[in-house]
Amino acid sequence: MRYNFVVSLLSAASVVYGYGDPMACSGVCNNAHDPALIRRDDGTYFRFSTGAKIAIHSAPSITGPWTYKGAAIPAGSKINLKGKDDLWAPDVTKVGDTYYLYYSVSSFGVQDSAIGVATSKDLTKWTDLGATGIASKAGKNYNAIDSALYWDGSKFVMSFGSFWNDLFVVNMANPPAKTSGTAATNIAFKPEGEHAQEAPFIAKNGNYHYLFFSVGKCCGFDANRPAKGQEYKIQVCRSTSATSGFVDKAGKKCTEGGGTTVLESHGWVYGPGGQGVLYDPSLGPVLYYHYVDTRIGYGDGQKKFGINKIDFSSGWPVV
């Protein structure tokens, strides 16, 4: 009887918010703002995150125990902008035998921003190459932060953007240390409010390219929490092209405010975002992100690393 009662409670909780809680995490599970996750060929997992000149953590398992390994770019970026010693929003991808680590140089709320890149053969020692050619100044309709590299089957593309006209994509050279010189294309825009949309990440499943992104207020929850529902959450649109035509589950264009929610605040999980997708050899596709654990605290430095398995069986990602 007690077992059935517990099962009923768990089922009721699932009905209330419909999301699985993050997988277990051990070791250093904070220091995880805007995480980037990759698995090395020897099975070691590496996590990169905003701040401390891009903090590196590694673990023998995706759930830990995570250990701090130092800064990826300890001397700061070659890009001579304010923020070159406080780098944001890493993204890491392996191309051939080389890892590419993209990062943002910026200051909060301004467009004087640029996306840089560093390379490595082992994910531990990095050579900063500086600017990729993606940059923004006042007057541009985008902000050059929150980049993520993607291979669409024929070329490398870089998604990026935060506020202003929100999310963009630009073609990259091969190897992808620089842009190809083409203009950036708008792929998603929230026309209402503050245009609070950022952190695009494209992942392929089946015939579709899925554009994951974060919507709402990201930070400073300990000082000023937004109205309920206005905090960070993760949404998605999809397209048969990686550079245009993204729509949400209802068919609404992503450039006209579309977006189907994948993960939002629930239970003790608050403000999930800064996400990416990893295809893990044992778990399949997983969504990784940062979030606030309300049982611990709302500070930016307290944000934790979250992972959920993704089910694409409906044609849309469910965690």
Score class of each variant (00 low, 15 high):
229 G>T: 03
230 Q>W: 13
29 C>A: 06
45 Y>Q: 00
5 F>A: 12
307 I>T: 07
146 D>L: 06
139 G>D: 02
56 I>M: 01
240 T>H: 09
18 G>L: 07
172 M>G: 10
159 S>Q: 11
214 S>Y: 05
85 D>H: 15
306 G>Q: 06
271 G>S: 15
187 I>T: 07
311 D>F: 05
18 G>A: 12
106 S>N: 07
122 D>M: 11
136 S>Q: 06
268 W>D: 07
311 D>L: 05
274 G>I: 02
159 S>E: 12
262 V>P: 05
31 N>R: 08
198 E>A: 02
58 S>L: 08
98 T>A: 05
74 P>E: 11
58 S>K: 15
234 I>E: 15
190 K>T: 03
232 Y>I: 02
179 T>D: 00
228 K>A: 15
222 D>C: 01
21 D>N: 12
102 Y>F: 06
92 V>Q: 01
187 I>D: 04
302 Q>M: 04
1 M>I: 07
22 P>M: 02
285 P>I: 04
196 A>F: 11
77 S>L: 12
233 K>N: 14
107 S>I: 13
172 M>N: 06
205 N>K: 09
197 Q>A: 14
173 A>Y: 04
27 G>F: 12
201 F>C: 15
29 C>E: 03
309 K>P: 09
302 Q>C: 01
205 N>W: 10
128 D>F: 05
78 K>G: 12
54 I>K: 04
109 G>H: 13
147 S>I: 01
220 G>D: 13
177 A>F: 04
236 V>G: 02
76 G>K: 05
233 K>L: 06
187 I>E: 05
165 N>G: 02
78 K>C: 04
308 N>F: 05
219 C>T: 03
153 G>Y: 15
89 A>E: 00
248 D>P: 04
248 D>E: 12
35 P>V: 06
72 A>M: 06
215 V>F: 14
3 Y>L: 14
40 R>Q: 09
233 K>P: 00
17 Y>V: 01
63 T>Q: 09
76 G>C: 01
310 I>P: 11
203 A>P: 08
209 H>A: 03
232 Y>K: 02
44 T>L: 13
266 H>S: 09
309 K>F: 05
157 V>N: 11
262 V>A: 12
150 Y>K: 09
33 H>S: 14
51 G>M: 07
205 N>T: 03
228 K>V: 13
66 W>R: 07
18 G>R: 10
201 F>E: 10
198 E>R: 00
62 I>H: 09
164 W>E: 14
175 P>Q: 14
168 F>N: 12
296 I>S: 05
186 N>E: 13
145 I>A: 11
43 G>H: 08
147 S>Q: 12
45 Y>K: 08
81 L>E: 11
200 P>T: 03
13 A>G: 01
278 L>E: 10
268 W>Q: 00
100 Y>N: 06
286 V>T: 13
76 G>E: 01
222 D>K: 02
25 C>K: 10
152 D>M: 07
288 Y>P: 04
131 A>K: 05
126 W>G: 04
66 W>P: 01
36 A>V: 02
227 A>T: 09
113 S>V: 07
224 N>T: 03
96 G>L: 06
316 W>G: 04
